[in-house]
Amino acid sequence: MRVTVTVNGTTETHDVEARMLLVQYLREVRGLTGTNIGCDTTSCGACTVLLDGESVKSCTLLAAQADGEEITTIEGMAAPDGTLHPIQEAFHQHHGLQCGFCTPGMVMAVASLLKEHPDPSEAEVREGLEGNLCRCTGYHNIVQAVLSAAHSGELVP
């Protein structure tokens, strides 16, 4: 079937199998491999992207369901000149990543979280990230990064 999807501001049309998942579409058709696949049960959140500004797990959407939608992936976060998005920068500053596999999904989940909770408490950050698993950091520095990003004043919705 034919789908037209805008990803990081670029609109393309492709023929895909009906059973193709959005995450496969992004990785295999659009060549955006920053979005990772960490599980098959909607548990780990590594595949999190923004669909019309809201975090979703792209392993649990069909590419067909994204037809006509706007998707933002990790590749769409930094400025065109390579300057990291304030959330990415906060992860860097606070050592909020180690192996980096969960990181793209984590960053996208944070983007959505901070849109909904611009001034979160630590508890709200932890609850807001309950859909994203990380095996390296123990979450400590991720939480610090999110709190710092929220309070940096640089996040203009």
């Binding site: 992936t73 990790i74 590749e75 990291l84 992860f91 860097h92 192996c99 980096g100």
Partner: peptide, 8 residues
């Protein structure tokens, strides 16, 4: 970090 944070 930059490569991991940017999806590169």
């Amino acid at each position: 970090d930059p490569a991991l944070l940017s999806g590169e």
